[in-house]
Nucleic acid binder design. Structure first.
Lengths: 357, 357
DNA sequence: GATACAGACTTAATCGATACAGAAGCGGTG
DNA sequence: CACCGCTTCTGTATCGATTAAGTCTGTATC
């Protein structure tokens, strides 16, 4: 292995063997195009020269295919991976990617980002981007569109020109809301992660709710509201509390805002299962019998929800990921922008029951 | 925006404006090299022609820098992300990557892999690879070495030519073992994830323990053994149980193998915190008072461990990731291969106490 | 004996951009 | 007028590979 001098290239090897560059290229990429013995001789020479096979970048350039898709996060990775829902989605994308030998390029763009994530987006060698949970007005979207590559989002955004795969947030949340209303609950609280900015916890005003960054959050809130108002519950009486972060423990703490007050709600709707699980923790701490004293419903149906017997709305997160991946890897021929809504389903388990009294 | 015809390139724009290709390139990459007005005119033309800025692949080729580092997993993503330790490590890598506008290319290579992960490795446009928890004999290592790019592992492997950043698994595990021995425990069980292959749960023989794929697992087992034998405990009396997967629930189930027997151990050493938490769950189910009736120690010190008041060995996972990332992004000049061992520390909390009786 | 055809390579064009050495134009100066 | 440093561009040579089309052989077919 000669590690001195210039790095070996196809040409180097070709010269050493006394054949053309093309033949060496074929030796790697199209074994059927040349004689078996010659192929061996070429590999032998390559080994001797320390040539490590065709350069991935050059190959990408020539082929016009990067062999990777970009996943842009608007949060830090630890935040993103803390939620089993994200992991499920990511796994779905990874499944289809892996099947076609494609890599997944993670690009974190946290809002606080002192780092240079714009560079990362601009230099990303990918065949397409998947934009995952973008708050309104985040620079990511523009930056990515500027790249002019295929793009898929999971947020039903205002922009109908971007392919989208997701669920009907509003109608799905409504299912949970109706379930709660049907059980006779009239004093309800809602737990969300963060309304305006991250880190801010506590009760959220109506204005704040409507100004929320994230389309999915807004959709779900609207769904809960639809159901409850239909049942005659005044939305202004519904306490909407932000946990500040999308974590079980943050939710458990924030639950104090409605659990430790005089007129405790009989039901809690959480915007996601992780938050719902936190509420369950808080109830347990206080010795409340969930399903009798108080009802709790979540959203997503992550694996842990099943174990905790949590009533929730199931959305097919793996399927969502797979679909998003497929949309990027094999963009459909059709003219019209695909906008796919996957089915959801209310899963009633043990954490919801008739309103007490 | 003219989306018809051939894709616009630097040349297209240059021709339209009537300047050289170089100048257009400079407009994007070195604004100081040309007149401000001209630069504006160039951008204007670019917009008109639908040119989306320099092509990332071509730029990478010319610059000789990919702007990404590859992270190779030997497990499925959901498995990898289920452990907060992995997430912590990943976050560390992401931090330094992000600071320099570098992306993270995830390449899953699960052993069962029907997919084409070899292609993914070969076509990965990256500046270096980080190999994360590789079982012995996994094809990944060879495949990656063949690429001839910088490489860092987190497993202290047999191959000293690969830069490495990790901890002294054996000595660290010994800390936990000694702690348990010092508390007077003589009947001890050990919980591991999987010894030989994934999915297989239940007691593991000595041979199986030594044949274990993963270097870190072997190291930790050796450390526990060192400490216990030194205290006069016969290792063959120590029940080593595999959970089959590295998950809390799998561990809770597998704990039955030593909790529901006549001579129940007074202490359990888990190879990782996630498993330890599972053991705690199992103890709780059985009404055992952890810290009194039975002691449990983990390894890693993931955030949840603190909340559960779990005695464990802290390893700096974030730091490990940052270091690995830095090693790839700015390879040190020195001749000798860096092999860094980070410090660890025993964190005694509430789940360990004197042996009963 | 002419034609077709497969096998094994080679030629030349191309992918889209960047680096580096120059060159033109400028006002000023001895 | 030759020469200076400075800014603002241009020309050309890469970066490392893939691919379509073409050139030879030699052999099978009619």
């Amino acid at each position: 292995m000669d590690s001195r001098g210039k790095r070996a290239t196809l040409q180097t090897v070709a010269d050493a063997v006394g054949v053309s560059r093309t033949t060496v290229s074929n030796a790697y990429g199209r074994p059927d195009q040349l004689n078996k013995d010659l192929r061996e001789r070429i590999f032998e020479a390559a080994r001797r020269l320390g040539y490590s096979g065709p350069d991935a970048t050059a190959r990408s350039l020539r082929r016009g295919r990067a062999g990777a898709i970009g996943l842009v996060f608007t949060e830090t990775l630890s935040y993103a991976f803390a939620d089993p829902y994200s992991v499920g989605f990511l796994r779905g994308v990874a499944e289809v990617a892996e099947a076609s030998g494609t890599g997944l390029l993670l690009i974190p763009m946290p809002p606080a980002g002192g780092g240079d994530s714009e560079t990362a987006v601009r230099n990303a060698v990918v065949d397409g981007f998947c934009l995952y949970c973008v708050p309104k007005g985040h620079p990511a979207k523009e930056l990515i569109r500027a790249r002019g590559l295929p793009l898929v989002t999971t947020d039903e955004s205002d922009d109908p020109s971007i392919p989208y795969v997701g669920i009907d947030e509003r109608a799905s949340a409504r299912l949970a809301g109706e379930h709660i209303a049907r059980l006779g609950h009239r004093r309800v609280a809602v737990m969300v992660d963060h309304v305006v900015g991250p880190g801010v916890s506590g009760p959220a005003s109506l204005d704040e709710q409507l100004a929320s960054d994230c389309a999915d959050l807004r959709g779900r809130l609207a769904g809960y509201r639809d159901a409850l108002e239909e049942a005659g519950v005044d939305w202004s009486s519904v306490r909407v509390v932000a946990a500040g972060r999308n974590s079980r423990s943050a939710s458990a703490s924030a639950a104090a805002h409605f659990l430790d007050v005089a007129e405790r709600p009989t039901a809690v709707l959480a915007i996601g299962d992780v938050l719902a699980l936190g509420v369950l923790d808080a109830c347990e701490q206080r010795g409340l019998a969930v399903g009798r004293d108080i009802s709790v419903a979540g959203f997503d149906d992550v694996p842990e929800a099943g174990r905790a017997r949590l009533t929730t709305v199931r959305q097919p997160m793996g399927e969502k990921g797979r679909l998003a991946g497929r949309l990027l890897l094999e963009p459909p021929e059709e003219e019209k922008v695909p906008r796919i809504k996957l089915p959801t389903e209310l899963v009633v388990r043990a954490t919801t029951g008739p309103a007490p009294h």
